[in-house]
């Protein structure tokens, strides 16, 4: 038995491709499943959220402007990096919440899910586009385009697979996102941010905040520069706040609070389509 003191990690926020401390300089402690201290987390503030949304907005046009093929490559790269950190994630998940067997299957599934969406980036537009018959000399077609900046509220369980299943379809479709991670499992979100950081995802495409959800959700849903909110947190009070505040700029709101992310059905191109807008173009044609 050594006398060595464990060095607990201080997890930082991930904003605009940089790991930064909260401007509030407040912290909170996350506990493991035995209620022992696990990590120190930044208590992200309203202003951190604002900065993250600004970063996401700045990155959005560039990310949407990349070729679909390139976005697929980058998502695949995320899967590769996650594979490389497999043991770390298994250990962290086991520490934080679940059995070893469950942790292993969750990490494997998360890797496979990233590969799944990596494959979809250059295929879903073909699947969901259409050429429409019209009664005039026009070539009329409809294509999906990204909604913009998406606010993601992470679920409390399924710390890794839940988060990956929310982020992947959103960014696969050319959106950028700001993630408010679970209070219980902020450290997992933090480690996932490190994976994202090391896998060619441009800064600002994924921003990860830790903190008290109740302090952040209303501002996320009320921010006029956020185009859509996706919440998987099962909290009726917060769902109500999200819906109330989202009306201000008519955000698209989706609640995925009853989804079992371990199931095969929890991945499909329809999750990408939840954050796409259909643009229809009329192009005159000669006879």
């Amino acid at each position: 038995m050594s006398n060595r003191l464990n060095v607990l990690k201080t997890c930082k926020l991930y904003i605009g491709g940089k790991f930064s401390r909260s401007e509030s300089e407040h912290y909170f402690q996350a506990l493991d499943k035995k209620q022992k201290p696990l990590a120190n987390l930044c208590r992200g503030s309203r202003k951190d959220l604002r900065n993250a949304i600004q970063a996401a907005r700045k990155a959005q046009a560039g990310w949407a402007g990349r070729t679909a093929y390139n976005r697929g490559q980058i998502l695949y790269r995320m899967a590769e990096m996650l594979e490389g950190r497999r043991d770390q994630f298994v250990a962290e998940l086991e520490n934080a919440a679940v059995t070893r067997r469950r942790a292993e299957s969750e990490v494997e599934l998360a890797i496979d899910r990233l590969v799944h969406y990596a494959g979809w980036t250059d295929k879903y537009p073909a699947l969901f586009s259409s050429v429409n018959p019209v009664a005039s000399p026009h070539f009329n077609f409809s294509i999906p385009e990204p909604t913009g900046v998406v606010g993601i509220v992470a679920p409390d369980d399924n710390a890794l697979i839940g988060l990956v299943s929310l982020i992947a379809p959103v960014i696969a479709g050319g959106n950028t996102c700001v993630v408010v991670s679970s209070e219980k499992h902020g450290s997992i979100a933090c480690t996932l941010a490190e994976v994202i950081h090391s896998s060619d995802v441009p800064g600002g495409v994924v921003n990860v905040l830790t903190g008290f959800r109740a302090e952040l959700v209303s501002h996320l849903a009320g921010h006029m520069d956020v185009n859509s909110v996706l919440s998987a947190a099962n909290d009726p009070e917060q769902k109500k706040i999200i819906q109330e505040n989202a009306h201000l700029n008519v955000k698209r709101v989706h609640f995925y609070d009853a989804t079992d992310w371990m199931k095969e059905q929890a991945q499909s191109p329809y999750y990408i389509m939840d954050f796409q807008e259909i643009k229809t173009t009329w192009h005159p044609v000669g006879t």
């Binding site: 604002r50 949304i53 009320g222 006029m224 520069d225 505040n245 201000l248 700029n249």
Partner: peptide, 9 residues
């Protein structure tokens, strides 16, 4: 208003 704004508006 208390809400952060967007240049869109």
């Amino acid at each position: 208003t208390g809400q952060y704004q967007s240049p869109d508006y």
